[in-house]
Structures are given as structure tokens and as C-alpha cells.
Design a protein around this nucleic acid. Sequence first.
DNA 1: AATCGTCTGCTTTTT
DNA 2: GCAGACGATT
Length: 662
Amino acid sequence: MSFRLFDLNPEQYRAATHPEGALLILAGAGTGKTRVLTARIAWLVSQGVDPASILAVTFTNKAAREMRERVATALNNQQAKAMTLCTFHALCVRLLRRDATLLGYKENFSIFDESDQMGLIKKLASRIHDQQDPINPDLAKNLISKAKNLGSAFPEGTGTALGSLFARYQEELRTLNAMDFDDLLLQARNLLAQHPEARERWQKKYRYILIDEFQDTNRLQMELITHLVSDPINLCVVGDDDQSIYSWRGAESAHLIEFEHAFPNPEIVTLEQNYRSTDVILATANRLIKNNARRRKKNLWSNEKEGESVRVLSAQDDTTEAEFIADEILERHRDESWNQFAILYRMNAQARFFETALRERKIPYRVVGGKSFFDRREIKDVMAYLSALLNPDDDTALLRVLTTPPRGLGKISLQRLMEISVQEKKMLFEVLQEPATLDNFSTKMQEAIRNFLEEWETLKIRLQTPGHDPGALVGEMLREVGYYDDLRKSCKKAEEADARENNVRELLQSLTEYCQKNRREGVQGFLDRMVLEREKEEEEEVNDGVTLITLHAAKGLEFSHVYLVGLEDGLLPHERSKQEGTVDEERRLCYVGITRARKTLVITHCRTRKKFGTMLSCRPSPFLLEIAGEGVEQGSMEEILSRPLEEEDVDDAFARMRSLIA
DNA sequence: AATCGTCTGCTTTTT
DNA sequence: GCAGACGATT
């Protein structure tokens, strides 16, 4: 075995080599969680376990990718390939692509992403049109999602406008042979709950189950796990209740805290030795988190005893906060590369000040989060073509195809087609194919419809021919129907047009590559991946820069120098959390922020801040009182700036001035 | 169908 | 203070 088990500390070793039964690994921040999971998988295989019977589930694609890479180094390639290592959603797609017919879906169902979902909700909401209480689509989406993740396909309040919206939404999805993200979990759960033969088949396949970030599981995911686990129980979960920051999305850390309820007498291993931060930073984190009542007690420690003090600094206002930090980063960059610095904040809106300050000083930076490649119009267009090709029931996708580019079928004709579709209880594509349909339209329209059908059929047939290049075929069709021309026409600048066209080519190129590599999964597999893994392949992390990131997005990352900013009452903890009684989660958020730091940590707060356009005075966050203690220095930025320079700094400043003059 | 102006309402966002 | 949504206008 190439993975060296003797590199593990005693607790890690115990977790990695625990023989059988339920195993709960409480892995504090930076305690080598992924390492242990990888080691455990390697150990299982070394004990003769068939890799194909191992299932390891993560929450993010990134985590899955990282784990796969590490497993591949620990095992040989073939073994690593044989095991299932994916996100919850990808696992569900796998189950459902095989067994969806048992639930009344076809196995070529479409997966609706958030914008598809939103579009459908808006359409239905406008149809219901209740003058009493108009439906807020955002709210509706959240409530539907929440209900589903609690395990229910039905709204709580039937009879309300929202209730009927939920019902019709679900009905519509089924007619379109489509599932949204939550449905993937919901239907997979239903599959295992309602179909014993399927359940047994999957249980038999996955004998060894490992779950990462277990504190983030919602009820549906927990049910799914419970159904999948067979006898003997071989379930290993890893998590940290102190880092549970997604309860607003339905995650229940109670699954971890009360793990024994679901799986009695588990082996429990607590990992407390931290390999990331200095002891001073960890002591600060410990002092903060112990104020949370319901948790599994952990006390992080590190061998790194020599560390700089944690500094808590106040600033007059948000601009000063940003400028001070930017100056300090500039100063420290002398012996650290830019990407060792991170600025962590509660809200994306806070990033702006830091962007300005960094830009003024020509410091490179990257803001994590923002518009995804996959939200771009042209990408959605091509995805619609692929969806409509694979799932003829997906009217949403087909409508997009029919109107992009304009084919002489305008709003009115499409409306008429949809009316016929509703009347005859047939899907849009069937209606198009029906010869009788054409009688309703002018000769010009008939021509347009016939043209489209002809193109579409040709493409379908060619795609099915073996040895084809799907990317090239779709690209060819797009060109023939004038899609590229239309795309260019809709752009103001030539640069934008080039960029969009390039995006399409890139997408088609990766379609071709995917199909070459994964013969069996084909176009369907590619589409699944595109919807579920909404990240561009060459996420260019090569360029060096300071990271600007929200606390939520920072989980799992680490930086040598961390600036945790905006520690003000109402911002962290956020005002709304105080109203909703979820300050504990805000504390965990703060805890996550602190534990990202390897060497130095600066925590800042402003005495005044611009909110909604006006300057308001701010009180320091109550968390600052909780972290106060040995190794934490307090100060103000103004005081530091007015402090007389120390001698060497003066020398330095003179030296720099002289070199500027020279 | 596109563009302009006004109104509103304000976390976090793994898939 | 500003983005995003929506409705009125050409």
C-alpha cells in the first residue's frame, strides 16, 4: 500500500483502521479530515474490500475532486476508478438514471437548475395571479425547497395560493419529465423507501459508506443514508458540528450531535490536533466556540507554540478599515506571496471597499463567488439544445430552442401551439409532429415548423450514428440555423460577441472530449455534469492574488494571513440572526473564519459604517468580548498610524524615498 | 423588442 | 446607494 498509515497520529490511525460498525469521526478544523478519509479507504481496500462496493459522499464537487485525487495516489488508478466518489446529488442522479421508471419518470429526465426552476415558478405564479396575496417567486422557491428537503413533496398549507403553486409546480415538473435539485434527493429517497428490490440492490452494491461534512446533511440526505446502509452497518461519517453554517439551507447538525439515535453504539473518534494554525489562534477559536451550548466538546491544539498575537483593531469607518488592511498587506508582501493573504467578510457587499483599496495600491486580488460561466445566456442556450434533444418532454428547453434563434415562430404562434398542447394533453414536441397541427397555421408558419422538424430529426439521427462527434454536429446545426449570427447581433461590442462565441465553442469542445472519454455516459452524462458541477474546468488559480471571500465560502480553505473584517453587532452576528435566534450559527461562522488562519490573524471592526447609503454608528460585535484573553491584543488603526515610526522603519522609509528620487 | 425611468428592498448560497 | 425588477414609452 503506497499510503503510509504510520504517518497518522494515534486518533487518526484509530479512525482509519476501525474494523466494522458505525463510526463517527469528529474532526475539528485543520485536523486532517480528508487525510483520514483517504487513509480509511486505502485501508479498507488493503483489507480486501472490493473498491466497487465503497461509496464516499461529499457535499461539493471540489471536495469530491480533491478526495479522488488523493485516493488515486493512495491506491492504483483502476481501484480508484472502481469506487463511487461523488456528491449527494450526483449519487442520486446515478440511482435515478437507472431506476426512475419505478417512480413514474423516464430515465432521460431533465435536471432543472435554479434558473430553470425560477422560470417555471414565475410562469406558474403569473398564471395563479391571486390579487389577494401576490406570490413572491423568491419566497416561493425557498419554501418549496425547504419543504422538499424536510422530506415532503407537499406544501404545509394546502388551499393557500402558495400551496396550489407548489402542487402545480410539482405536477408541471413531472409532465416535463424533469427534476429540480431537491427532487433528485427527494425522488432517490422515495425510490429506496418505496421499492424494496431497488433498495436491496443498491444496498448490496454499496457495502461501505463514508460521508464527509456530515454536520451539513439535511433530513432528506439523512433518510437517504439510512436507507442505503445495510447490515452489517459499515458507515463512517466525518464532520464538525462547530463548523455547521448551513442550517438556513436545511442542514441539521443534530444528525451529528445525536448520531447515536440513528446508529446506536458508534465508535467515536475525536480529532483535536490541528496541523494548520498556531496555538494562539486556536486558543482564540476555542474561547469563542465554547460559548455555544449544544455541541460536542472539542479543544483544538497545535504543536506550533510560537505564534504572533491575534490583533483586534478598530477603525473609524469602512474606508479606513480597507485602506489600513491594504497598506499592511502591501507591507507584508515583502516576505509572503499575495495568495497567502485573505480578507474574510460576512456579506459580499463588504468586498467593494477592499477592492477599491487594493486596486489603488495595484495589489492583485480575486473575489471568490459571482456570476458563473453557466449562468451565461449562450451557455444556457446550448444546454437547452442538448436537453431538448435528450428529453423530448422538456417543453421549457424546446421553447428556448424554437425561439433561439428566431425561426419565424413568434410569441403568438408559440402561444397557440401551447394551447393545443394543453387541450390535447400532448407535449409540445408531439404537437409539432402532428400533421393536423399545421392546419391551424399560415403557410409561412407551416414551412417554419417543417423546417425545424427536419433539422431536428437530421441532428438526432446523426447523433445516434456511432463514431460521431457530438460537439461538431451540434455546432454545425447551430451555424446552419443562424444561431451564431443571432448571438453576434445581440452583442453591442465585437469583443463581447467573440467572447460569447468562444464560450459556446469551448462548451462544444468539452462535450466532444467528454464523449470520447466516457463512451457509456455519452451526451446525457455530459449534461448531468454540466448542470451539477457548475464550475469551469480551468479555474485559473495560477494567478497570484489576495483572496476576497465570504465566511461561508471560506470553509475548508486556509491562508497564512487572515483578515476577519466587520466584526460589528448587526453584521456578525447579522441583525437578522439576532431576530431569528440563530446567533450560535453566526458564532460558528466567526469560528470558521478564525480557524482559516495559519500564522497571523487580524480581526477588525468599524466605529461607523455606510449602510443603505447613510453613515451609521456601529457597536463592536459581542464575539469580541468572548475571544478576549491571552494572546489577543486590542488597538485602533488610527492609534497605530499616529504612532511614531520605529528607527529601522524610518531608515527603511528614507531608503525607499532615496531610491524613488534616484 | 428595446430602452428608459422609477420603485423597492436589502445575508449567507455546497447542488 | 445601488442593483434588479417592472412597467410605461418609443
